[in-house]
Amino acid sequence: MSFIVTPKILLPVSSINKEKWAVIACDQFTSEPEYWDELKTLVDNVPSTYHLILPEAYLDDEPVHRVEKINYNMDLYLKNNLFEEHEAFILVERQTPHVKKRLGLVIAIDLEEYQYEEGKIGKIKATEKTVPERIPPRVKIREKAPIELPHVLVLMDDLNESIITNLYKNKNKLEKLYDFKLNMDGGHLRGYKVTNTSEIIQQIENLSDDLNLIVGDGNHSLASAKVCWENIKKELPESEWSNHPARYALVELISLYDDGLTFEPIHRVLFNADINVIKTLENNLSGNALLDIYYQNNVYKINVPENPFNAIKEIQVILDEYISRNKYIEIDFVHGMDSLKKIVKNNKDSVGITMPALKREMLLPYIRENGVLPRKSFSLGEAVEKRYYMESKKILK
């Protein structure tokens, strides 16, 4: 059995306003609740994926009530026939404020072949170390949800960029499913229906013998889907495993070498912190590279290792140890320099730590040699370039 299957994708019916329907991934702008407050005002009470997700900026704000409301809305949307079903892949063309074109393919992957734990072998691997405590809150959201909405981006080692590019060259022969401007300055989104999926599946399977696909964005969300499936399996006879919708997760597949794919660092911000954080980093790091740290109205420069993977790993180890000794300090992971500077400016006792950028050609060699990257090592694009929720899929029978 293949590790890729053709999903039955749910899209909003034509009468629904797509600009209000699609919203950005829930794990963005986590320290900027004003973004989500503005989005809430924009979508109002019309059908929108905003009502089907829990923005992580609100994780500490009545999460149980919010999850119950999300599940209620999902059931309501299904009962009121707000979706149309397409058994196909979807070719996605995304324009962002920073790139003119990024191509992807919405597919479903077999969670039996996905592994996020170190040492376990699978045809689909996490790129970053998952944090166990980040999984249970996501499981709570998913375990009773009738549908899933994906913001997971999966990368394939398609050096010639032939699979998705060839589909795009022939897009005029495909049925266009949507074409609209994204809200909150997210750019533009187009989707084309791909029904000849068996040939594409074979092409993807032929790419590599040792590592077929790696997860670029959404590692913790996919790990949560895996946990939910493992829990469901315990209550099912094995004969029913292959037909259960929760076994398969909807993701967007992108070539690692797509010109529209950018690798951005994920910065750190520490709240309730002071100059001692900077001194601790200075005393424990060395190297020929420099990175900036923002505190109050000052910018500090410290030396770090030239290898960005090593720099990220050493910085995170130091920060974890420092936070363990200073329980009042909280950490957040921030996408984009503008957001980092804004957060530090608006929060008096905060320290913003920039992180080095990675190069895509270093990614697969590092994973093959070391298994996974340090957690929160990189981001595929800036926050505003993240995946918008458009497609969905049933995960409960």
Score class of each variant (00 low, 15 high):
I109W: 02
K386Y: 06
L54D: 13
L222D: 02
S339V: 12
L236K: 00
Q296C: 05
C228E: 07
I318N: 08
S350P: 01
H244Q: 01
I16W: 06
P7F: 07
E199W: 06
V64H: 14
E314Y: 12
S15L: 13
E264F: 00
K173S: 13
A108T: 01
K301W: 10
L380F: 03
V67Y: 02
E382R: 11
K301F: 08
L261V: 05
I266L: 09
L319F: 05
V152W: 00
H86T: 12
L285H: 04
L159P: 09
V5E: 12
C26L: 07
S379C: 12
I266K: 00
R325F: 12
N196W: 05
E391V: 07
N71S: 11
S377L: 04
A57Q: 03
V152K: 02
I200G: 00
Y294Q: 05
D320F: 11
Y114I: 05
W229Y: 09
N298A: 12
L211C: 11
E369W: 01
E56V: 09
P237D: 02
Y50G: 09
Y300E: 15
R247F: 02
P374I: 06
S350F: 03
I312M: 07
E391Y: 07
N370Y: 13
L291I: 15
L261P: 01
R66N: 12
N196G: 07
Q296V: 08
L105H: 08
D210R: 06
L290E: 14
V99E: 13
I107S: 09
F29S: 02
G371T: 08
L149Y: 02
S162F: 03
D60W: 11
I323R: 04
Y116R: 13
E118M: 08
I124W: 08
I395E: 03
F378R: 04
N303D: 15
N212C: 05
D292R: 15
A57M: 08
V13I: 15
I353F: 09
L111D: 08
K301L: 13
K376W: 11
L373Q: 07
E230V: 11
M355C: 04
Y178T: 12
I302A: 10
I4T: 01
I293T: 03
V251G: 08
